[in-house]
Design a protein around this nucleic acid. Structure first.
Length: 349
DNA sequence: TTCCAGCGCG
DNA sequence: CGCGCTGGAA
């Protein structure tokens, strides 16, 4: 055995023993059911544990097995996902459940390579499911792993690049032990989430103080290197809140833009907006700001009251233009983006 | 108010 | 490489 392997073993032993002393107790760690592990990993993509936890409980409660999820409707799944963001995760989740139920009799794919073919499952999630549920020796590389390894080994590659992804995957796969790969992966992520945190980590508590490159060289605050070039565009939305008796006009959003599959209202800037002259537009004074990953939204709402006797006419227009006429009772069950939920809350809905 | 953390797709 | 969301911290 050469010294590299000895070092690797020392690293994995140390991080695993840290993990055994400091485990987070999480419900998806109590199971080896690949369905529940997959569900938890999709929820946790781009999402903190504290925020994802209630959604995990809700999904397990509503859909205890992949069969239950496969037999649900997409709109129901989106409604349960409401507020969590990145809604394509929910659409992919549901579509995968149907696919696995229909094509594989509900038997979950069990290898890294086959998991990777599932929509919404990339290299991180495939490695997580393969190692946690099936014991495959495959290292996860997420934001935590980038941080831990870049600091410990002093790697200065910009972690936003594809080059870094390859480099860190190779390194992590050299470190992962064959005996308990899943535990090593959990350990790396917990260590990054709880001790080797992005800002002001408490290095005095760290088992790697003596060997960490960043610690020894005073580079902890500089690593990992991440060049942030996300540019955010400004965008204005002018919503028409069209009410007729107990009914409101809604729009189910299509693909190719934000909030695919969720519901909001007709936009005034729409070409074919019909109620140009005949009805009074009452703008609400309050505007709503909402930040997405690449857009800064500034939304205004104007109310339009349609007399009840116009209901049939309005219903026909909705039919023709692809809008939904929904009663206040039924609105509750539509999946809506946070911005719209905020607006409704302000109006006691 | 701004900044930042957190993967996958086309 | 541009794009998709929200919440919590600075």
């Amino acid at each position: 055995m050469n010294s590299k392997n000895t070092d690797n073993q020392a690293f994995s032993n140390l991080i695993i023993s840290w993990y055994r002393e400091n485990p987070r107790e999480l419900p998806w760690r109590e199971t080896s059911d690949p369905y529940k592990i997959w569900l938890s990993e999709i929820i946790l993509q781009q999402t903190r544990v504290a925020q994802g936890l209630p959604y995990y409980y809700a999904f397990v409660q509503n859909y205890p097995t992949i069969k239950d999820l496969a037999h649900a409707s997409e709109s129901e799944v989106l409604r349960l996902w409401q507020g969590l963001g990145y809604y394509s995760r929910a659409r992919n989740l549901h579509s995968c459940a149907k696919y696995i139920w229909d094509e594989f009799e509900g038997k979950f794919p069990s290898t890294y390579e086959t998991l990777l073919r599932l929509k919404g499952v990339g290299s991180y999630t495939a490695a997580a499911i393969a190692s946690f549920a099936f014991g495959e020796v495959k290292a996860v590389v997420d934001g935590n792993v980038f941080r831990v390894l870049s600091r410990y080994f002093g790697i200065e590659t910009d972690i936003a690049t594809g080059k870094a992804k390859k480099e860190f995957e190779i390194l992590a796969n050299r470190l992962i032990p064959k005996e308990n790969p899943g535990e090593f992966n959990q350990a790396m992520m917990d260590f990054g989430a709880r001790l080797c945190v992005p800002k002001n980590p408490d290095c005095t508590q760290c088992p790697f103080q003596g060997s960490c490159f960043a610690k020894k060289n005073g580079l902890v605050s500089q690593l990992p290197v991440k060049i942030n070039k996300t540019k955010v565009k400004d965008r204005k939305l002018e919503y028409a809140v069209i009410k007729c008796g107990e009914h409101w006009v809604w729009k189910k959003r299509g693909s190719g833009d934000i909030w695919t599959g969720l519901h909001d209202f007709p936009l005034l800037e729409q070409e074919n907006f019909p109620f140009d002259t005949s009805y009074k537009l009452q703008p609400f004074p309050k505007r709503y700001r909402h930040i997405l990953s690449h857009q800064k939204l500034d939304a205004g709402f104007s109310e339009i009251i349609i007399p009840s006797e116009q209901h049939p006419h309005l219903a026909q227009w909705c039919e023709e233009e692809g809008y939904l006429l929904v009663s206040e009772k039924e609105m509750e069950y539509l999946a809506k983006p946070k911005l719209i939920v905020n607006f409704l809350n302000d109006h006691g809905i």
